[in-house]
Design a protein around this nucleic acid. Structure first.
Length: 428
RNA sequence: GUGGCCGUAGCUCAGCUGGUCAGAGCGCCGCGUUGUGGUCGCGGAUGUCGGGGGUUCGAAUCCCCUCGGUCACCCCA
C-alpha cells in the first residue's frame, strides 16, 4: 500500500491506546515508588545549550556523535537531551537548592543512532538523582529504590550488575595498568577492538566480540587497583546492599557509557530478554560532574531507566498487563443525541466514567459500540423513556443483574449503586 | 556509519518458476431483529501489491536504484 506522506521518523514511535495505558501505569508506579522515598519531581527543558551535554572531558558516543543538535534562530548551538543527568545537574548548579537534593524525572531522550530492538532515536526514561552526599548509604538507597521499582512492576528475572570506577585518580592509574596489559595481547583482540586499546582501553573490556572477550576475561579488574578510600566506599555499598537482601553480580568489566561516573556503577539486566540492547536501568555515582558544570564540588548519584525496554522486559516475563479499559457506562441515545449529551454530563459530574455514540447511529450500532467499550452497563434512552421520564439500564456482561428502568432523577444514584456492587473485575 | 533479512487491505498473511494476480482470515460497515450488544447467517467497503526506473506483448511476481521496517555491529535506556 502507499505509505502516507508523513510518518513517524526512523527510530520514533506513536504509543496509542490501549497500549499507552501501560505507560500510564508504569509512570504511576515509578512516581509512587520514588516519592515514597522523598524524591520530588524535577522538570527541566528538553533542550539545552550543547555544552551542558558535551563537555571537554566527555567522550561517550551518545554525546560525541549521536547528539541531536542544531543552531537556533538566534545562532545558539542547541542540543536535545541525550540523557537525563546532565540537565538535572545544570539545574542544581543554577538554583543551588539545599542538599541532599533528591529529585526524579520522566523525560524523552534523543540520540541519533540506528534503531534496533530496544533502541530508538527518541526513547523515554524515568530516573532520579541524589546530589550532595558522598555517603555510601546514598548509593545503597539509590540501588535499592531501583530494585523496588522493578519489583513493583512485577519484574523478577533481573540481574543487578555492580562495579566501581573508583576516583578519577584511581581510574587514571588503572587505565595505565590495563592499557599496558592489553598492549601485550593486542594481536589476540578482535581487529575492530585493537585500535581502541590506545584510544579508550576501558571500552575494550565492554566489547561483545568473541575474540576480545576471551582475552579480557583475564584482564586486571579496577576493583584490584583502588585506593584504600575507594575500596572502603565500595565495600560499604556492597555490605549495605547485602544487608537489605540485594546480592549483586560483581561485574568488573561493566563500563558505563558516560565518562562522568566515579565509584559505584550499576545496571539491571533482564535475564529473559534476548535482545542485544537489554539493560533496563543503569546508573552510578558522578562526583565530579557538578564541578564540571560550574558548581561547587558536590557528589551525586542517580540512575536512568528506559521505559521501552522496561516494557519489553515485562512482556518477556508476561507481567504487568495493561489495565482494562476504564469505562463504567455507555449511553445509548436513539432520539438524536441531546439526551446522551445531558446524561454523560450528569454521570461524569458524579465521577462515573462514561462515553456515548455520535452521528445518530442505529441502536444496533450503538449497542455494539457499548459492548466494545468494555463498560459493564449501557444506559438506553429512546422515545419511550423520554415520554416516561426514565432511562433503561442494561447490564452488558454476565453478572446476573436484570435490565431495569429507573426515573431519570434516580439514574446517577442507581448506577453508582450498581457499580459498587459489581463483582470484582480487577482480577488479572 | 556498516551488514543480513523484509515491505501485498486497518491487522496477520497467502499469491512470487512472469499471463482470471488483486486474495484469505480477523476487524470494520449494513441487514436479518424499523428499541437492545456479545453467538449465528447474508451482504458490503477499503489496496496506485512501499516509491521510481528497467526488461517484456504482458510484472505484485525478474533486474537496478531509492525509501521504510526489522535484526545485528558500534553504542546505550
Amino acid at each position: 500500500m502507499a505509505r502516507p506522506r508523513y510518518q513517524a521518523l526512523k527510530g520514533t514511535q506513536d504509543v496509542l491506546p490501549p497500549a499507552s495505558a501501560r505507560w500510564e501505569a508504569l509512570l504511576a508506579t515509578y512516581a509512587a515508588t520514588v516519592e515514597r522515598a522523598g524524591y520530588g519531581l524535577v522538570q527541566s527543558p528538553m533542550f539545552e545549550e550543547i555544552g551542558v551535554f558535551q563537555r571537554e572531558s566527555e567522550g561517550a558516543d551518545a554525546v560525541r556523535k549521536e547528539m541531536y543538535d542544531f543552531e537556533d534562530k538566534g545562532g545558539q548551538h542547541i542540543a536535545l537531551r541525550p540523557e537525563g543527568t546532565a540537565s538535572v545537574v545544570r539545574a542544581f548548579v543554577q538554583h543551588h537548592p539545599l542538599t541532599p537534593w533528591k529529585v526524579w524525572y520522566a523525560t524523552p531522550a534523543f540520540r541519533y543512532e540506528n534503531a534496533q530492538a530496544g533502541r530508538f532515536r527518541q526513547h523515554h526514561q524515568v530516573g532520579l538523582e541524589l546530589l550532595g552526599t558522598a555517603d555510601p548509604e546514598a548509593d545503597v538507597e539509590v540501588v535499592t529504590i531501583a530494585a523496588e521499582f522493578l519489583h513493583a512492576l512485577g519484574l523478577r528475572q533481573v540481574e543487578l550488575q555492580l562495579n566501581t570506577m573508583g576516583t578519577v585518580d584511581d581510574r587514571v592509574r588503572y587505565v595505565e595498568v590495563l592499557q599496558g596489559w592489553l598492549r601485550e595481547r593486542v594481536g589476540d583482540l578482535d581487529p575492530e577492538d585493537q585500535a581502541r586499546v590506545e584510544v579508550h582501553p576501558m571500552r575494550v573490556l565492554d566489547s561483545k566480540r568473541r575474540a576480545t572477550r576471551a582475552v579480557t576475561a583475564e584482564a586486571p579488574a579496577i576493583a584490584d587497583h583502588l585506593s584504600p578510600e575507594s575500596e572502603a566506599h565500595f565495600a560499604a555499598v556492597v555490605d549495605g546492599l547485602s544487608a537489605v537482601g540485594i546480592e549483586p553480580t560483581m561485574a568488573p568489566r561493566l563500563v558505563r557509557g558516560f565518562d562522568y561516573y566515579t565509584h559505584t556503577t550499576f545496571e539491571f539486566v533482564p535475564t529473559l530478554v534476548d535482545n542485544a540492547q537489554a539493560t533496563i536501568l543503569g546508573g552510578g555515582r558522578y562526583d565530579g560532574l557538578v564541578e564540571e558544570l560550574g558548581g561547587p564540588p558536590t557528589p551525586g548519584i542517580g540512575f536512568g531507566s528506559g521505559i521501552e525496554r522496561l516494557l519489553i522486559a515485562c512482556d518477556a516475563e508476561g507481567v504487568f498487563p495493561a489495565p482494562p479499559t476504564a469505562l463504567d457506562v455507555f449511553v445509548v441515545d436513539v432520539t438524536g443525541g441531546a439526551h446522551a449529551r445531558e446524561l454523560t454530563r450528569e454521570l461524569r459530574a458524579a465521577g462515573i466514567r462514561c462515553d456515548r455514540a455520535f452521528d445518530q447511529r442505529a441502536m444496533r450500532a450503538q449497542m455494539k459500540a457499548a459492548d466494545r467499550s468494555g463498560a459493564p452497563f449501557a444506559v438506553i434512552v429512546g422515545d419511550q423513556e423520554v415520554a416516561d421520564g426514565v432511562a433503561t439500564v442494561r447490564p452488558l456482561a454476565e453478572f446476573g443483574a436484570e435490565q431495569t428502568t429507573v426515573p431519570r432523577a434516580d439514574l446517577v444514584a442507581h448506577v453508582s449503586a450498581l457499580l459498587t456492587d459489581l463483582p470484582s473485575k480487577d482480577a488479572p
